[in-house]
Design a protein around this nucleic acid. Structure first.
Length: 601
RNA sequence: ACGCCGGUAGCUCAGUUGGAUAGAGCAUCGGAUUUCUAAUCCGACGGUCGUGGGUUCGAGUCCCGCCCGGCGUACCA
């Protein structure tokens, strides 16, 4: 299904060609109802380029415009805006063209075609350090990365969600050494390892490391053993990593996020070869952009300076011979390009690392490891702050575990659910058992956290406010889920089976709220186009909120229309169809954001 | 010092290559309820878009200066 905006763009473009002009038709939804449904802003800019009067050019565009099948009228307004007033029958036809709900409801595309051609995209996301428990700092990358992956998957691309976990480095020597001390039998039964609290395990190990010289030495020896591939050490290390990953996947499962775990350790040999290659280049050309500096192997790139104004290098081998994250990022890019055949790599990592990625990308380009046909993108996001705008910490200044945060959100959702279902008015609500309420609260609570995050512009910091996100009012997940649940409730009450609702009934758009809802539903296609182009997820949340609000008006007893007891059967069917496409749009939109719906609340 | 990001209503935030009178939610105030789930809807109030210049038919958006805040600036990731 093409968006109305796309159709109008095509028509205006054709008209521009007819009068020998070239340019973007600049079609946008009208800023005000009195300016019609869509407007074109292209005449003013074009007129200037052509040395004509804007209104004259606008008139010529209209003269050559063929939109009789779409519009009632096209007006020229102000300095040269074109205002398009859509034909209700055209909108009705567009709605009727939305295919029926497929057998597999999960496969519902609302008539939106996949992209052509498709490509292989790597989304680098989440990436916690396995030494510790996942904390709130991993929330945004996980939630945003998942939504981006879902959007691109829906567009038809092959998406590989890479969880580049930290499972390598000196701290793992310490943890393995500590594990061996605390649990000497671990090497014989690695699969039985259970660490209930990773965080306190790490803290205990660290304390020992700082206070016990013997243990410190032991830890260092363990790191060496690990790096040399000592089988017994590796078994324990692997047991630890797997246990830590189990903790992570408890959270991923809960969030319904699917990931491929590929940790640092996977790249150890690849990092060796990256450094060997660069070192060889350095030897061949000692005065080139790859040089030794203070004992470190460095790649020097234009445009990056230290605070003293000296050239700032990308260090790929530290002076102690060790590797750092630049080394591993170079190795991952090679792997993703050469082995995974990715043509687009998206890093969902916080904005503070912007410079790092700029340097890595610059190095990769300069080295020729990724040509112009490969897109490297850092999708940076802002920080999550506390409600007061301070860094997000516990009262004692520690990091907040992601698990605790999610539990808190679900508990709040549960209490909102209880509060809004007063015992003395049970008839106001669908009957709900305590278990059902728990399950619904789980969905709402997680939805609230995700939706609140995604409804902010990616690059801005936001203040984490539980009260706000679980509220039924405003641009929140509960409001959205409620709108969806209400529609489903209408279906139950009207005793209709949505999947067998006849799709060949005429759609009647007479009431203003019917028109408004029809337009809003059809707008999904253009919002989706924008979303795929820019990956600006809040564009979708804003749209879904508008859609939910538009539905609430349509459904409102005073300003809206009757549905189940509509005056005529044809009208009833038409309105039920509107309900259906609204619900499906809400469901699909939320699904693309990684948010599940509930059938009742 | 340099670089990046931000400063929009009392609060939280939108604002798509520059477009018409800068939007929404919360809060406050007023209205609608014998309910197809009022968990909602309608209305009102609320702005020198940090600041001073510039570019032009038109600037929250682009350019320059300044103020304020955050982050980054060689071997932590």
């Amino acid at each position: 299904m093409k968006s109305i905006l796309t159709i109008l763009s095509t028509r205006v473009l054709a008209s521009l060609h007819a009068i020998g002009a070239e340019g973007d038709p600049l079609i946008r939804p009208s800023t005000d109802d009195k300016f019609g449904d869509y407007q074109s802003n292209c005449a003013m800019g074009l007129a200037k380029k052509l040395g004509q009067k804007p209104r004259d050019l606008a008139a010529r565009i209209v003269e050559h415009l063929d939109v009789d099948d779409i519009c009632d009228k096209v007006e020229i307004a102000g300095p040269g805006f074109l205002n398009f007033h859509l034909k209700p029958p055209f909108l009705a036809k567009c709605l009727q063209d939305i295919p029926a709900l497929p057998q597999d409801a999960e496969a519902d595309r609302l008539g939106i075609a996949p992209a052509t051609p498709t490509e292989t995209v790597v989304v680098d996301m989440s990436s916690p350090n396995l030494a510790k428990e996942m904390h709130v700092g991993h929330l945004r990358s996980t939630v945003i990365g998942d939504a981006v992956a879902r959007v691109l998957e829906f567009a038809g691309h092959e998406v590989i969600r890479e969880n580049h976990v930290g499972d390598w480095g000196t701290q793992f020597g310490m943890l393995v050494a500590y594990l061996r001390r605390e649990n000497p039998a671990i090497a014989d039964h690695p699969e039985s390892l259970v660490i209930s609290d990773l965080e306190s395990f790490y803290i205990a190990a660290k304390k020992r490391f700082d206070t016990d010289e013997t243990f410190k030495t032991e830890s260092r020896e363990t790191v060496v053993a690990l790096q040399q591939g000592d089988p017994q050490t590796r078994v324990i290390w692997q047991a630890f990593c797997q246990e830590s990953l189990r903790h992570c996947h408890d959270i991923y499962d809960r969030l319904q996020v699917k990931l491929i775990d590929r940790g640092e350790s996977f790249y150890t040999d690849k990092m060796e070869s990256v450094v060997a290659t660069l070192d060889a280049m350095r030897e061949k050309d000692p005065q080139g952009f790859i040089r030794d500096s203070d004992g470190a192997l460095c790649v020097f790139l234009d445009g990056f300076n230290t605070r003293d104004g000296e050239p700032l290098p990308l260090i790929v081998r530290k002076s102690d011979g060790g590797f750092n994250y630049a080394t591993s990022d170079l190795a991952t890019i090679l792997h993703r390009v050469e082995s995974l055949k990715a043509t687009r790599i998206i890093y969902v990592v916080g904005i503070p690392q912007k410079q790092h990625f700029a340097m890595v990308f610059s190095a990769v380009r300069k080295l020729g490891w990724a040509g112009p046909d490969i897109s490297l993108e850092h999708l940076g996001f802002g920080s999550m702050l506390s409600k007061t705008g301070q860094p997000f910490k516990t009262r004692v200044g520690g990091t907040v575990k992601l698990k605790d945060l999610l539990n808190e959100a679900v508990a709040r959702a549960r209490s909102v659910l209880t509060q809004t279902t007063p015992e003395d008015q049970p008839q106001n609500r669908s009957a709900m058992t305590s278990d059902q309420a728990d399950a619904i609260a789980e969905t709402i609570g997680l939805a609230a956290v995700k939706y609140f995050d995604l409804s902010h512009a990616l690059s801005s910091d936001y203040k984490f406010d539980l009260d706000m996100m679980v509220s039924m009012e405003g641009n929140t997940a509960p409001y959205m889920l409620y709108a969806y649940a209400r529609i489903r409730s209408i279906g139950r009450k009207a005793d209709v089976d949505w999947s067998s609702l006849p799709t060949d009934v005429p759609i009647i758009l007479e009431h203003p709220t019917e028109m408004a809802l029809a337009k809003k539903v059809l707008q999904f296609a253009e919002v989706y186009d924008l979303l795929v182009r820019d990956l600006r997820l809040n564009v979708l949340t804003d749209y879904l909120y508008e859609l939910a609000k538009t539905f609430s008006r349509f459904y409102d007893k005073k300003h809206g229309v009757r549905i189940i007891d509509a005056p005529e059967e044809s009208v009833r069917l038409s309105r039920l169809r509107l309900c259906d496409v609204t619900a499906r749009t809400l469901k699909l939109g939320l699904h693309l954001l990684g948010i599940e719906t509930v059938e009742q609340m």
